[in-house]
Design a binder for these strands. Structure first.
Length: 429
RNA sequence: UCCCGCGUAGCUCAGCUGGUAGAGCAGACGGCUGUUAACCGUCUUGUCGCAGGUUCGAGUCCUGCCGCGGGAGCCA
Protein backbone atom coordinates (compact mmCIF):
# COMPACT_ATOMS: atom_id res chain seq x y z
CA UNK A 1 0.00 0.00 0.00
CA UNK A 2 1.31 3.38 -0.96
CA UNK A 3 1.94 6.10 1.58
CA UNK A 4 -0.23 9.20 1.69
CA UNK A 5 1.32 12.50 0.72
CA UNK A 6 -0.31 14.09 3.77
CA UNK A 7 1.89 11.91 6.02
CA UNK A 8 5.23 12.63 4.35
CA UNK A 9 6.39 15.43 6.69
CA UNK A 10 6.52 12.82 9.48
CA UNK A 11 8.70 10.54 7.36
CA UNK A 12 11.68 12.73 6.55
CA UNK A 13 14.65 10.57 5.63
CA UNK A 14 12.51 7.49 4.95
CA UNK A 15 12.09 5.79 1.61
CA UNK A 16 8.43 5.78 0.56
CA UNK A 17 6.18 5.13 -2.40
CA UNK A 18 3.30 7.50 -3.18
CA UNK A 19 0.68 7.01 -5.87
CA UNK A 20 -1.25 9.77 -7.50
CA UNK A 21 -1.73 11.97 -10.54
CA UNK A 22 0.80 14.31 -12.10
CA UNK A 23 -0.38 17.88 -11.76
CA UNK A 24 2.67 19.18 -13.63
CA UNK A 25 5.94 17.90 -15.09
CA UNK A 26 8.86 20.26 -15.69
CA UNK A 27 11.91 18.85 -17.46
CA UNK A 28 15.38 20.40 -17.54
CA UNK A 29 18.63 19.05 -18.91
CA UNK A 30 19.77 17.18 -15.80
CA UNK A 31 16.86 17.51 -13.38
CA UNK A 32 13.11 17.08 -13.70
CA UNK A 33 10.22 17.98 -11.40
CA UNK A 34 7.11 15.86 -11.10
CA UNK A 35 4.31 17.41 -9.07
CA UNK A 36 2.11 14.64 -7.71
CA UNK A 37 -1.39 14.93 -6.23
CA UNK A 38 -2.94 11.99 -4.40
CA UNK A 39 -6.07 13.45 -2.81
CA UNK A 40 -4.42 13.89 0.56
CA UNK A 41 -1.88 16.46 -0.56
CA UNK A 42 0.60 17.53 -3.18
CA UNK A 43 4.32 16.80 -3.29
CA UNK A 44 7.07 17.64 -5.76
CA UNK A 45 9.26 14.76 -6.86
CA UNK A 46 12.78 15.69 -7.93
CA UNK A 47 14.44 13.42 -10.49
CA UNK A 48 18.19 13.95 -10.91
CA UNK A 49 19.38 12.49 -14.19
CA UNK A 50 22.78 11.41 -12.91
CA UNK A 51 21.31 9.68 -9.86
CA UNK A 52 18.72 7.39 -11.44
CA UNK A 53 18.77 4.58 -13.99
CA UNK A 54 18.25 5.72 -17.56
CA UNK A 55 14.77 4.14 -17.83
CA UNK A 56 13.60 6.02 -14.73
CA UNK A 57 14.77 9.30 -16.23
CA UNK A 58 13.17 8.54 -19.58
CA UNK A 59 9.84 7.61 -18.05
CA UNK A 60 9.78 10.55 -15.64
CA UNK A 61 10.58 13.10 -18.32
CA UNK A 62 7.94 11.86 -20.74
CA UNK A 63 5.07 11.83 -18.21
CA UNK A 64 2.09 13.85 -19.38
CA UNK A 65 -0.26 15.95 -17.27
CA UNK A 66 -2.67 13.85 -15.14
CA UNK A 67 -0.89 10.55 -15.66
CA UNK A 68 -1.36 8.16 -12.77
CA UNK A 69 2.03 7.12 -11.37
CA UNK A 70 3.71 5.66 -8.31
CA UNK A 71 6.80 7.57 -7.26
CA UNK A 72 9.37 5.96 -4.97
CA UNK A 73 12.03 7.97 -3.23
CA UNK A 74 13.37 9.61 -0.12
CA UNK A 75 11.49 12.26 1.80
CA UNK A 76 13.59 15.36 2.23
CA UNK A 77 12.72 18.67 3.87
CA UNK A 78 13.38 21.54 1.49
CA UNK A 79 12.48 25.18 2.02
CA UNK A 80 12.04 25.63 -1.75
CA UNK A 81 9.15 23.15 -1.83
CA UNK A 82 5.61 24.48 -1.46
CA UNK A 83 4.72 21.96 1.25
CA UNK A 84 8.14 22.14 2.92
CA UNK A 85 9.04 18.61 1.81
CA UNK A 86 10.15 17.01 -1.43
CA UNK A 87 10.69 13.53 -2.70
CA UNK A 88 14.07 12.61 -4.16
CA UNK A 89 12.87 10.15 -6.75
CA UNK A 90 14.55 6.79 -7.20
CA UNK A 91 11.82 4.96 -9.09
CA UNK A 92 8.79 5.67 -11.24
CA UNK A 93 6.00 3.28 -12.15
CA UNK A 94 3.37 4.25 -14.70
CA UNK A 95 -0.04 3.08 -13.51
CA UNK A 96 -2.19 4.83 -16.09
CA UNK A 97 -0.95 7.06 -18.86
CA UNK A 98 -2.74 10.24 -19.89
CA UNK A 99 -3.36 11.52 -23.37
CA UNK A 100 -3.28 15.22 -24.08
CA UNK A 101 -5.13 16.57 -21.06
CA UNK A 102 -7.84 19.06 -22.04
CA UNK A 103 -7.65 21.33 -19.01
CA UNK A 104 -4.47 23.36 -19.04
CA UNK A 105 -3.08 25.31 -16.11
CA UNK A 106 -4.58 28.55 -17.42
CA UNK A 107 -7.87 30.36 -17.81
CA UNK A 108 -10.73 28.52 -19.46
CA UNK A 109 -14.28 29.43 -20.31
CA UNK A 110 -17.19 28.22 -18.19
CA UNK A 111 -18.80 26.18 -20.95
CA UNK A 112 -15.57 24.34 -21.69
CA UNK A 113 -14.97 23.61 -18.03
CA UNK A 114 -18.51 22.36 -17.46
CA UNK A 115 -18.21 20.15 -20.54
CA UNK A 116 -15.15 18.69 -18.82
CA UNK A 117 -16.61 18.67 -15.33
CA UNK A 118 -15.49 15.04 -14.84
CA UNK A 119 -11.90 16.30 -15.15
CA UNK A 120 -12.39 19.79 -13.74
CA UNK A 121 -13.07 18.20 -10.35
CA UNK A 122 -9.33 17.56 -10.03
CA UNK A 123 -8.32 21.22 -10.02
CA UNK A 124 -7.45 23.13 -6.86
CA UNK A 125 -10.41 25.48 -6.59
CA UNK A 126 -12.92 22.79 -7.36
CA UNK A 127 -11.44 20.35 -4.88
CA UNK A 128 -11.46 23.04 -2.21
CA UNK A 129 -15.08 24.03 -2.84
CA UNK A 130 -16.35 20.46 -2.91
CA UNK A 131 -14.40 19.63 0.23
CA UNK A 132 -16.17 22.46 2.04
CA UNK A 133 -19.47 21.12 0.72
CA UNK A 134 -18.72 17.67 2.13
CA UNK A 135 -17.80 19.21 5.49
CA UNK A 136 -20.99 21.25 5.61
CA UNK A 137 -23.03 18.16 4.75
CA UNK A 138 -21.40 16.26 7.59
CA UNK A 139 -21.94 19.22 9.92
CA UNK A 140 -25.63 19.27 9.01
CA UNK A 141 -26.01 15.67 10.11
CA UNK A 142 -23.91 16.17 13.23
CA UNK A 143 -25.80 19.26 14.39
CA UNK A 144 -29.18 17.67 13.97
CA UNK A 145 -28.12 14.30 15.38
CA UNK A 146 -26.72 15.98 18.50
CA UNK A 147 -30.11 17.66 19.00
CA UNK A 148 -32.07 14.41 18.76
CA UNK A 149 -33.40 14.93 15.26
CA UNK A 150 -34.34 11.73 13.45
CA UNK A 151 -33.47 11.63 9.78
CA UNK A 152 -36.44 10.71 7.66
CA UNK A 153 -35.78 10.01 3.98
CA UNK A 154 -38.55 11.36 1.81
CA UNK A 155 -39.48 10.14 -1.66
CA UNK A 156 -38.07 11.65 -4.81
CA UNK A 157 -40.84 10.24 -6.99
CA UNK A 158 -44.14 11.72 -5.91
CA UNK A 159 -47.72 12.02 -7.02
CA UNK A 160 -49.28 15.41 -7.51
CA UNK A 161 -48.21 17.46 -4.50
CA UNK A 162 -46.20 20.57 -3.83
CA UNK A 163 -46.91 24.22 -4.17
CA UNK A 164 -47.40 24.81 -7.87
CA UNK A 165 -47.23 22.15 -10.54
CA UNK A 166 -45.65 24.46 -13.08
CA UNK A 167 -42.19 24.07 -11.63
CA UNK A 168 -42.19 20.29 -11.29
CA UNK A 169 -40.36 17.81 -13.48
CA UNK A 170 -42.84 15.34 -14.80
CA UNK A 171 -42.10 11.71 -15.54
CA UNK A 172 -43.98 8.56 -16.39
CA UNK A 173 -44.68 6.15 -13.57
CA UNK A 174 -46.13 2.97 -15.12
CA UNK A 175 -48.56 5.01 -17.12
CA UNK A 176 -49.33 7.39 -14.27
CA UNK A 177 -48.09 10.97 -13.98
CA UNK A 178 -45.36 11.39 -11.41
CA UNK A 179 -43.22 14.33 -10.38
CA UNK A 180 -39.74 14.72 -9.00
CA UNK A 181 -39.97 16.10 -5.49
CA UNK A 182 -39.41 19.81 -5.05
CA UNK A 183 -39.62 19.56 -1.26
CA UNK A 184 -39.81 16.88 1.41
CA UNK A 185 -41.68 19.15 3.77
CA UNK A 186 -45.10 17.56 3.65
CA UNK A 187 -43.49 14.22 4.44
CA UNK A 188 -41.38 15.43 7.34
CA UNK A 189 -44.49 17.08 8.74
CA UNK A 190 -46.09 13.64 8.68
CA UNK A 191 -43.14 12.10 10.50
CA UNK A 192 -43.17 14.81 13.14
CA UNK A 193 -45.76 13.13 15.40
CA UNK A 194 -43.67 9.95 15.23
CA UNK A 195 -40.32 11.42 16.26
CA UNK A 196 -41.00 15.02 17.40
CA UNK A 197 -37.85 16.40 15.73
CA UNK A 198 -37.16 15.19 12.20
CA UNK A 199 -35.35 16.26 9.05
CA UNK A 200 -34.81 15.20 5.50
CA UNK A 201 -31.74 15.93 3.43
CA UNK A 202 -31.52 15.09 -0.22
CA UNK A 203 -31.83 16.31 -3.77
CA UNK A 204 -34.81 18.39 -4.81
CA UNK A 205 -35.90 19.36 -8.29
CA UNK A 206 -37.26 22.57 -9.73
CA UNK A 207 -38.16 22.95 -13.38
CA UNK A 208 -37.84 26.73 -13.18
CA UNK A 209 -36.24 28.24 -16.25
CA UNK A 210 -33.84 30.24 -14.16
CA UNK A 211 -30.47 31.26 -15.52
CA UNK A 212 -28.72 32.89 -12.63
CA UNK A 213 -25.74 32.17 -10.44
CA UNK A 214 -28.07 31.15 -7.60
CA UNK A 215 -30.16 28.51 -9.34
CA UNK A 216 -29.85 24.83 -10.15
CA UNK A 217 -32.58 22.53 -11.40
CA UNK A 218 -31.33 19.84 -9.03
CA UNK A 219 -30.07 20.98 -5.66
CA UNK A 220 -29.74 19.65 -2.14
CA UNK A 221 -31.88 20.92 0.66
CA UNK A 222 -32.04 20.04 4.35
CA UNK A 223 -35.48 20.44 5.89
CA UNK A 224 -35.82 20.17 9.67
CA UNK A 225 -39.31 20.09 11.19
CA UNK A 226 -40.04 20.46 14.91
CA UNK A 227 -43.20 19.73 16.87
CA UNK A 228 -44.32 22.35 19.42
CA UNK A 229 -42.00 24.97 17.93
CA UNK A 230 -43.41 28.35 16.99
CA UNK A 231 -41.99 30.75 14.46
CA UNK A 232 -39.59 32.34 16.96
CA UNK A 233 -38.30 28.93 18.07
CA UNK A 234 -37.85 28.19 14.39
CA UNK A 235 -35.63 31.22 13.85
CA UNK A 236 -33.64 30.38 17.00
CA UNK A 237 -32.92 26.96 15.54
CA UNK A 238 -31.95 28.37 12.14
CA UNK A 239 -29.59 30.82 13.80
CA UNK A 240 -27.82 28.13 15.82
CA UNK A 241 -27.73 25.85 12.77
CA UNK A 242 -26.15 28.37 10.41
CA UNK A 243 -23.61 29.46 13.03
CA UNK A 244 -22.65 25.84 13.58
CA UNK A 245 -22.18 25.18 9.86
CA UNK A 246 -20.01 28.26 9.41
CA UNK A 247 -17.94 27.46 12.47
CA UNK A 248 -17.34 23.91 11.29
CA UNK A 249 -16.11 25.15 7.93
CA UNK A 250 -13.81 27.64 9.65
CA UNK A 251 -12.44 24.97 11.98
CA UNK A 252 -12.00 22.10 9.57
CA UNK A 253 -11.57 23.69 6.15
CA UNK A 254 -8.89 26.27 6.88
CA UNK A 255 -6.68 25.11 4.03
CA UNK A 256 -9.56 24.98 1.57
CA UNK A 257 -10.81 28.47 2.46
CA UNK A 258 -7.25 29.69 2.02
CA UNK A 259 -7.06 28.14 -1.47
CA UNK A 260 -10.39 29.76 -2.26
CA UNK A 261 -9.07 33.12 -1.14
CA UNK A 262 -11.99 33.54 1.26
CA UNK A 263 -11.92 36.49 3.64
CA UNK A 264 -12.59 34.48 6.79
CA UNK A 265 -13.08 37.57 8.94
CA UNK A 266 -16.46 37.91 7.25
CA UNK A 267 -17.33 34.40 8.41
CA UNK A 268 -15.99 34.91 11.91
CA UNK A 269 -18.58 37.63 12.46
CA UNK A 270 -21.37 35.10 11.88
CA UNK A 271 -22.41 34.70 15.52
CA UNK A 272 -25.74 35.08 17.32
CA UNK A 273 -27.86 37.03 17.43
CA UNK A 274 -28.86 37.58 13.81
CA UNK A 275 -30.90 40.72 13.21
CA UNK A 276 -34.63 40.06 12.80
CA UNK A 277 -36.68 42.50 10.83
CA UNK A 278 -40.34 42.05 9.96
CA UNK A 279 -41.47 42.41 6.39
CA UNK A 280 -43.43 45.52 7.34
CA UNK A 281 -40.42 47.10 9.06
CA UNK A 282 -38.29 46.27 6.03
CA UNK A 283 -40.79 47.96 3.70
CA UNK A 284 -40.87 51.02 5.96
CA UNK A 285 -37.10 51.26 5.97
CA UNK A 286 -36.87 50.72 2.21
CA UNK A 287 -39.29 53.58 1.70
CA UNK A 288 -37.36 55.74 4.16
CA UNK A 289 -34.39 55.23 1.86
CA UNK A 290 -36.49 56.38 -1.06
CA UNK A 291 -37.17 52.99 -2.64
CA UNK A 292 -40.92 53.49 -3.08
CA UNK A 293 -41.78 49.89 -2.26
CA UNK A 294 -45.45 49.08 -1.91
CA UNK A 295 -46.57 46.95 1.05
CA UNK A 296 -47.87 43.57 -0.14
CA UNK A 297 -45.43 42.90 -2.94
CA UNK A 298 -42.88 40.16 -2.49
CA UNK A 299 -39.35 41.34 -1.94
CA UNK A 300 -37.30 41.16 -5.13
CA UNK A 301 -33.60 40.60 -5.60
CA UNK A 302 -32.83 44.31 -5.34
CA UNK A 303 -34.77 44.70 -2.08
CA UNK A 304 -33.16 41.62 -0.57
CA UNK A 305 -29.71 42.87 -1.47
CA UNK A 306 -30.50 46.23 0.08
CA UNK A 307 -31.79 44.69 3.30
CA UNK A 308 -28.79 42.39 3.72
CA UNK A 309 -26.45 45.33 3.08
CA UNK A 310 -27.74 46.89 6.32
CA UNK A 311 -26.08 44.14 8.39
CA UNK A 312 -22.75 42.33 8.71
CA UNK A 313 -24.29 38.89 9.23
CA UNK A 314 -27.30 36.92 8.00
CA UNK A 315 -30.62 38.68 8.57
CA UNK A 316 -34.08 37.24 9.18
CA UNK A 317 -36.98 38.85 7.38
CA UNK A 318 -40.18 37.53 8.93
CA UNK A 319 -43.97 37.62 8.55
CA UNK A 320 -44.53 38.28 4.87
CA UNK A 321 -47.90 39.11 3.30
CA UNK A 322 -50.05 36.04 2.87
CA UNK A 323 -50.30 36.54 -0.89
CA UNK A 324 -46.55 36.32 -1.29
CA UNK A 325 -46.19 32.98 0.47
CA UNK A 326 -47.25 29.34 0.34
CA UNK A 327 -50.65 28.00 1.39
CA UNK A 328 -49.38 25.93 4.32
CA UNK A 329 -48.02 28.84 6.35
CA UNK A 330 -49.90 29.79 9.52
CA UNK A 331 -51.78 33.06 9.70
CA UNK A 332 -50.29 35.67 11.99
CA UNK A 333 -52.94 36.19 14.72
CA UNK A 334 -51.61 39.71 15.35
CA UNK A 335 -51.88 40.78 11.72
CA UNK A 336 -54.11 38.63 9.54
CA UNK A 337 -52.64 40.10 6.37
CA UNK A 338 -49.41 38.23 7.11
CA UNK A 339 -48.22 34.69 7.82
CA UNK A 340 -45.75 33.38 10.41
CA UNK A 341 -42.72 32.75 8.26
CA UNK A 342 -39.18 33.87 7.66
CA UNK A 343 -36.44 34.00 5.07
CA UNK A 344 -32.79 34.13 6.00
CA UNK A 345 -30.70 36.38 3.76
CA UNK A 346 -26.98 35.72 3.77
CA UNK A 347 -24.59 38.65 3.41
CA UNK A 348 -22.15 39.51 0.62
CA UNK A 349 -24.75 39.10 -2.08
CA UNK A 350 -25.34 35.41 -1.38
CA UNK A 351 -29.07 36.02 -0.98
CA UNK A 352 -31.73 33.75 0.43
CA UNK A 353 -30.38 30.54 1.93
CA UNK A 354 -33.37 29.60 4.11
CA UNK A 355 -37.11 29.77 3.82
CA UNK A 356 -39.12 28.67 6.85
CA UNK A 357 -42.47 28.98 8.55
CA UNK A 358 -44.80 27.89 11.27
CA UNK A 359 -47.28 25.56 9.61
CA UNK A 360 -51.03 26.04 9.53
CA UNK A 361 -52.25 23.44 12.03
CA UNK A 362 -55.99 24.22 11.88
CA UNK A 363 -57.79 21.90 9.50
CA UNK A 364 -60.46 24.31 8.29
CA UNK A 365 -58.14 27.25 7.78
CA UNK A 366 -55.69 25.05 5.87
CA UNK A 367 -58.49 23.75 3.67
CA UNK A 368 -59.65 27.29 3.04
CA UNK A 369 -56.13 28.28 1.99
CA UNK A 370 -55.94 25.31 -0.40
CA UNK A 371 -59.19 26.51 -1.97
CA UNK A 372 -57.99 30.11 -2.12
CA UNK A 373 -54.88 29.05 -3.99
CA UNK A 374 -56.96 26.99 -6.39
CA UNK A 375 -55.09 23.81 -5.46
CA UNK A 376 -56.70 20.38 -5.92
CA UNK A 377 -58.09 19.37 -2.53
CA UNK A 378 -57.87 15.63 -3.25
CA UNK A 379 -54.11 15.84 -3.69
CA UNK A 380 -53.78 17.06 -0.13
CA UNK A 381 -56.16 14.70 1.65
CA UNK A 382 -53.39 12.91 3.50
CA UNK A 383 -51.75 16.21 4.39
CA UNK A 384 -55.08 17.42 5.78
CA UNK A 385 -55.29 14.18 7.80
CA UNK A 386 -52.43 15.46 9.94
CA UNK A 387 -54.80 18.22 11.10
CA UNK A 388 -57.57 15.72 11.84
CA UNK A 389 -55.59 13.25 13.95
CA UNK A 390 -53.90 15.08 16.79
CA UNK A 391 -52.95 18.32 15.15
CA UNK A 392 -50.15 20.20 16.84
CA UNK A 393 -48.21 23.43 16.43
CA UNK A 394 -45.03 22.88 14.42
CA UNK A 395 -42.48 24.75 12.39
CA UNK A 396 -39.72 23.99 9.97
CA UNK A 397 -37.49 25.35 7.27
CA UNK A 398 -35.46 24.45 4.22
CA UNK A 399 -31.80 25.37 3.87
CA UNK A 400 -30.28 25.28 0.39
CA UNK A 401 -26.96 23.47 0.54
CA UNK A 402 -25.32 24.89 -2.56
CA UNK A 403 -26.31 28.47 -1.74
CA UNK A 404 -25.01 28.06 1.78
CA UNK A 405 -21.71 26.57 0.60
CA UNK A 406 -21.51 29.22 -2.10
CA UNK A 407 -21.73 31.89 0.55
CA UNK A 408 -19.24 30.17 2.90
CA UNK A 409 -16.70 29.61 0.12
CA UNK A 410 -17.30 32.97 -1.52
CA UNK A 411 -17.59 31.40 -4.97
CA UNK A 412 -19.62 33.55 -7.33
CA UNK A 413 -21.71 30.74 -8.90
CA UNK A 414 -23.28 27.84 -7.01
CA UNK A 415 -22.79 25.48 -9.96
CA UNK A 416 -19.22 24.97 -8.70
CA UNK A 417 -20.41 23.74 -5.32
CA UNK A 418 -22.10 20.60 -6.58
CA UNK A 419 -20.01 17.87 -8.22
CA UNK A 420 -22.16 17.56 -11.33
CA UNK A 421 -24.45 20.58 -11.68
CA UNK A 422 -27.80 20.27 -13.35
CA UNK A 423 -28.73 23.53 -15.02
CA UNK A 424 -31.50 24.51 -17.36
CA UNK A 425 -29.29 23.68 -20.35
CA UNK A 426 -26.96 21.09 -18.87
CA UNK A 427 -27.61 17.43 -18.16
CA UNK A 428 -24.12 16.00 -18.83
CA UNK A 429 -21.63 14.94 -17.73
C1' U B 1 -40.59 34.11 -21.05
C1' C B 2 -38.15 39.06 -21.16
C1' C B 3 -33.60 42.47 -21.15
C1' C B 4 -28.17 43.07 -22.02
C1' G B 5 -23.57 40.97 -23.88
C1' C B 6 -20.63 37.31 -26.50
C1' G B 7 -19.54 33.39 -30.57
C1' U B 8 -12.26 33.77 -34.69
C1' A B 9 -6.82 27.55 -34.07
C1' G B 10 -7.42 21.99 -29.15
C1' C B 11 -7.69 26.28 -25.08
C1' U B 12 -7.64 31.87 -23.87
C1' C B 13 -8.08 35.88 -26.93
C1' A B 14 -6.54 40.19 -30.64
C1' G B 15 -8.19 41.54 -35.43
C1' C B 16 -9.59 49.81 -36.03
C1' U B 17 -13.97 53.71 -40.19
C1' G B 18 -15.01 46.52 -44.92
C1' G B 19 -9.30 44.90 -48.58
C1' U B 20 -8.70 37.98 -48.20
C1' A B 21 -6.13 35.09 -40.70
C1' G B 22 -2.79 36.63 -35.93
C1' A B 23 -0.60 36.08 -30.66
C1' G B 24 0.02 33.34 -26.19
C1' C B 25 -0.77 28.55 -24.24
C1' A B 26 -1.18 23.29 -25.51
C1' G B 27 1.36 19.54 -29.06
C1' A B 28 6.32 17.95 -31.74
C1' C B 29 11.71 18.65 -31.89
C1' G B 30 16.17 20.96 -29.74
C1' G B 31 18.64 23.75 -25.50
C1' C B 32 19.17 24.71 -20.08
C1' U B 33 20.67 21.52 -12.10
C1' G B 34 16.09 24.14 -8.88
C1' U B 35 11.55 24.88 -11.68
C1' U B 36 6.72 26.64 -9.04
C1' A B 37 0.96 28.24 -14.84
C1' A B 38 9.58 27.47 -15.71
C1' C B 39 12.34 29.77 -19.62
C1' C B 40 14.81 30.21 -24.86
C1' G B 41 14.68 28.60 -30.23
C1' U B 42 12.18 26.04 -34.47
C1' C B 43 7.70 23.74 -36.47
C1' U B 44 2.38 22.26 -36.88
C1' U B 45 -2.94 24.07 -36.28
C1' G B 46 -8.86 27.59 -39.12
C1' U B 47 -16.41 25.57 -42.04
C1' C B 48 -14.09 33.28 -38.43
C1' G B 49 -21.46 29.58 -34.84
C1' C B 50 -25.29 28.60 -39.14
C1' A B 51 -28.25 30.66 -43.21
C1' G B 52 -29.38 34.65 -46.17
C1' G B 53 -28.51 39.86 -47.65
C1' U B 54 -25.66 44.64 -48.87
C1' U B 55 -20.88 45.25 -51.56
C1' C B 56 -16.09 44.87 -56.78
C1' G B 57 -14.81 42.64 -51.99
C1' A B 58 -17.56 40.65 -45.35
C1' G B 59 -14.27 37.87 -39.48
C1' U B 60 -15.84 43.16 -39.80
C1' C B 61 -22.18 46.02 -41.92
C1' C B 62 -27.77 44.24 -41.98
C1' U B 63 -31.72 40.30 -41.01
C1' G B 64 -33.12 35.60 -39.09
C1' C B 65 -31.82 31.24 -36.46
C1' C B 66 -28.68 28.39 -33.06
C1' G B 67 -25.34 28.20 -28.88
C1' C B 68 -23.17 30.44 -24.48
C1' G B 69 -22.79 34.04 -20.38
C1' G B 70 -25.04 37.62 -17.02
C1' G B 71 -29.51 39.69 -15.10
C1' A B 72 -35.13 39.94 -14.20
C1' G B 73 -39.20 36.95 -12.69
C1' C B 74 -39.62 32.46 -9.49
C1' C B 75 -37.38 30.33 -5.61
C1' A B 76 -33.31 27.29 -1.70
Amino acid sequence: MAHQIRDLPDRAGETVTVSGWTAAVRVHARVAFVVLRDGTGVVQGVVVKSAVPEEVWTLATTLTQESCVALSGTVRPDPRAPGGHELTVTGVELIGGSEEYPIQPKEHGVEFLLDHRHLWLRSNLQRAGLKVRAEVEQAIHDFLYERDFVRVDTPILTGAIGESAGTLFETDYFGERAFLAQTGQLYVESACPAFRRVYCFGPTFRAEKSKTRRHLTEFWMVEPEVAFADSNDNMDLQEAFVCYLVRRALERCKAELEVLGRDVTRLESVVPPFPRISYSEAVERLNAEGREFEWGRDLGAVEEATISSWFDRPVFVYNYPKEAKAFYMKENPDDLRTVLCNDLLAPEGAGEIIGGSQREDDHDRLLARIHEEGLPEEAYDWYLDLRKYGTFPHSGFGLGLERTVGWITGRPHIRELVPFPRLINRLTP
